[in-house]
């Protein structure tokens, strides 16, 4: 009988080994799955679309030309306003100081309302036509862009990427820290140099800025014309601004 008991208990050692193996295997599987699915924050990028100035699909497209700027301004000017519109000022009676009869005044108001409505319709139709022309043009970037211009649009693009990244990394311990950072980006979209032109004096904040720059570097595309780009950005707890 005792021999039987001993025999059955020897299995406990085997199962202990089996259990340890299962735990190690589970741990390895979790590590493997973690490597298979990288952190979501590196994959999901938030895009902000400026509905007034159409988004630059590829920053390499460069700036709109001056005449293109005019087109955009025109489109914006003719676009219907979202907010309540003020009715156009009613022209004052020409002269004489005499009072206009109420029936005549009423007729004038109606005519003005019709004219205003017609003008609004025309403006809306023109704005829609302008937007359609831009969309169906088949070109990327702003209207008239040749892709040769480098500069401010890439800055805006970079600013957007930095702002996104900084939102994820921000942390600080002083009251209102801010740091001015000059970035040099090479033709391949890699950050060559990060220079703090003004230090915040808050190590936690500066570490957050550094991490934001590193994070943004993974998402940015090369500058227009694959030339070296230099830009200065101001990091504050409220966000990132261009200088």
């Amino acid at each position: 009988m005792h021999a039987l008991h001993r025999r059955s208990d020897t299995w406990l050692g085997v199962t202990l080994l089996l259990s340890a193996t299962v735990h190690v295997a589970a741990f390895v599987c979790m590590l493997w799955l973690q490597q298979l699915n990288p952190a979501l924050d590196q994959l999901q990028t938030t895009y902000y679309v400026d509905v007034v100035n159409l988004p630059v699909v590829a920053p390499q497209a460069g700036n709109p030309l001056p005449e293109a700027n005019a087109t955009v301004e025109e489109a914006v000017a003719t676009a219907p306003q979202a907010g309540p519109q003020k009715p156009p000022a009613t022209p004052l009676p020409a002269s004489g100081g005499g009072k206009v009869p109420p029936s005549e005044d009423h007729g004038f108001q109606e005519r003005m309302a019709k004219l205003t409505a017609k003008a609004a319709e025309q403006r809306q139709a023109a704005a829609l036509e302008s937007l359609r022309a831009k969309i169906s043009g088949g070109k990327t970037g702003m209207p008239g862009a040749t892709g040769s211009q480098s500069g401010s649009d890439y800055t805006a693009y970079l600013h957007s990427r930095l702002k996104d990244a900084f939102r994820e990394t921000i942390s600080y311990q002083s009251a209102a820290p801010f740091a001015v950072v000059r970035l040099t980006i090479d033709g391949d979209g890699r950050i060559l140099l990060t220079r703090f032109e003004r230090s915040s004096g808050d190590k936690l904040f500066e570490s957050a800025v550094q991490r934001a720059i590193t994070l943004a570097e993974q998402r940015i595309v090369p500058p227009p014309g694959r030339t070296t780009y230099e830009g200065t950005f101001v990091f504050k707890p409220q966000g990132v601004t261009q200088q």
């Binding site: 202990l16 259990s19 299962v22």
Partner: peptide, 18 residues
């Protein structure tokens, strides 16, 4: 906790078998 988990799973396997 990992020790508890490893040993309890060993006992679970052992008892299932037994």
């Amino acid at each position: 906790l990992i020790f508890f988990s490893v040993v309890s799973w060993a006992i679970i396997f052992f008892k299932l078998f037994q």
